[in-house]
Amino acid sequence: MSRTETAPRSESSIPVFDGHNDTLLRLWADPTGQAAEFFFAGGAGGHIDAASAKAGGLAGGLFAIFPPSPRDQSLSDAMRIAPYDLPLPAPLTQSGAASDTVAMAAILFRLEARSKGALRVCRTVAAIEAAMAAGALATVLHIEGAEAIDADLAMLDVLHAAGLRSLGPVWSRPNWFGHGVPMRYPSSPDTGDGLTEAGRRLVRRCNELRILVDLSHLNEAGFGDVARLSDAPLVATHSNAHAICPVSRNLTDRQLAVIRDSGGLVGLNFATAFLRPDGQMDEDTGLDVMVRHLDHLLEHLGEGGVALGSDFDGAMIPRGIGSAAGLPALLDVMLGAGYGRELVERIAWRNWLDVLRRTWGG
């Protein structure tokens, strides 16, 4: 790891490209129906809007579509006290998930149309670079939980034509493609069966279309199936080190080695239950534990294999960051910990663009 004794302390010129947020879900689910209208005007709430992105240097990221399961209690609330083993929600229907997926995709495309160039849906790395150079928010369409896609994968082709460039086959609930990990602490990620035959077809077709396959939320068996099938770099968009926080959602050192050997990448998840050694969701979590995870990931993945995957708008994050506007606080802690500016830039955005280029081509 590149460390310097006199690391620069100004992070103001370092942009962030983030591997995961649930902002589209928040805008879609807002009970007033007005959140998307206020995304550029202020008052949208949550972790990401135009103002907070600009204030924090958030230059872009993978914007997830997550078809939700009905539930009575938020996961963050249920994970405040460890140990826990939360029951998995029931599987979704394809028709219901497809309806929700299209609705959230429409929000992103409407934001782009309304933005007058301030937000761009990007389908290539060149488009991301152009958006960042112009000061526009570079968004990439991602799906977390592929229930909207039929087993024959017709919907996958349609979504790819619309701009889909990254996909997580499962969220934690099971679907016809495979099995995710439960929200369980303490637990290994070895929690059940892997990909189904439909899941294996999905991975192969994603490789053909050059759609990134996200390992986050897959259980250990599914992770191994993707590793054996995929010819692309292995990527977990928002996961942490199991050696530090032994929750089922985090990656073991063996999994990190497999990702490293593929030339892949892991995005640091800001969700406090996946950061803290005690596995609890708690806003009063110091940023030093994030550096502990980064150090571990750098040791096992190398400097080209570590990035950020905040889970903004999808989880309880440390109070010291608070929203996208607080990203400079994390960069400052990294610089203060002795990370050289070049390494901070790689983690903040360059590594994401590198792995997307290797995955998408061009």
Rank of each mutant, 00 (worst) to 15 (best):
T6V: 11
A7E: 04
S13K: 10
S13E: 13
P15L: 02
V16G: 00
D18E: 09
H20R: 12
L24H: 08
L27H: 03
D30M: 04
P31Q: 09
G33W: 01
Q34T: 15
F38D: 01
G43Y: 10
A44K: 02
A51G: 08
A53Q: 06
K54E: 15
G57Q: 03
L58I: 07
A59M: 04
A59E: 01
G61F: 03
L62V: 02
F63Y: 11
A64G: 03
F66Y: 14
S76D: 15
M79H: 07
I81S: 15
L86P: 01
L88S: 04
S95Q: 15
A97T: 01
A98M: 09
D100W: 02
V102H: 05
A106N: 14
L108V: 04
S115E: 01
G117I: 03
R120F: 02
C122Q: 14
C122F: 03
A127P: 01
I128Y: 06
A130W: 01
M132H: 03
A134C: 12
L137Y: 13
H142T: 01
G145P: 02
E147A: 13
D150G: 12
A151L: 07
D152P: 02
L153H: 10
L153Q: 08
L156Q: 05
D157G: 06
L159R: 13
A161N: 12
L164P: 09
S166H: 13
S166P: 09
L167H: 08
L167S: 00
N175F: 06
G178C: 08
P186K: 02
S187Y: 06
S188N: 07
T191C: 14
D193F: 11
D193T: 10
G194E: 02
R200M: 13
R200I: 06
R200K: 15
R200G: 05
R204T: 05
L209H: 14
L212M: 14
L215R: 08
L215D: 02
S216V: 12
A221R: 14
R228S: 11
L229C: 08
P233V: 04
P233G: 05
V235Q: 00
A241S: 14
A243E: 10
V247F: 02
N250S: 11
L251P: 05
T252L: 06
D253M: 02
D253L: 01
R254A: 13
D261T: 07
G267E: 06
N269C: 12
N269G: 02
A273K: 14
F274H: 04
G279R: 12
Q280E: 12
M281R: 05
D282W: 04
L287G: 03
M290Q: 02
M290I: 04
H293E: 12
L294R: 07
G302H: 11
G302M: 05
G304F: 00
V306Q: 04
L308C: 10
L308I: 15
G309P: 06
D313P: 00
M316F: 09
P318H: 07
R319T: 02
I321E: 00
V333D: 00
V333T: 14
L335M: 15
G336S: 06
E342Y: 09
V344P: 04
W349R: 01
W352A: 00
R358V: 00
W360K: 13
G362W: 06
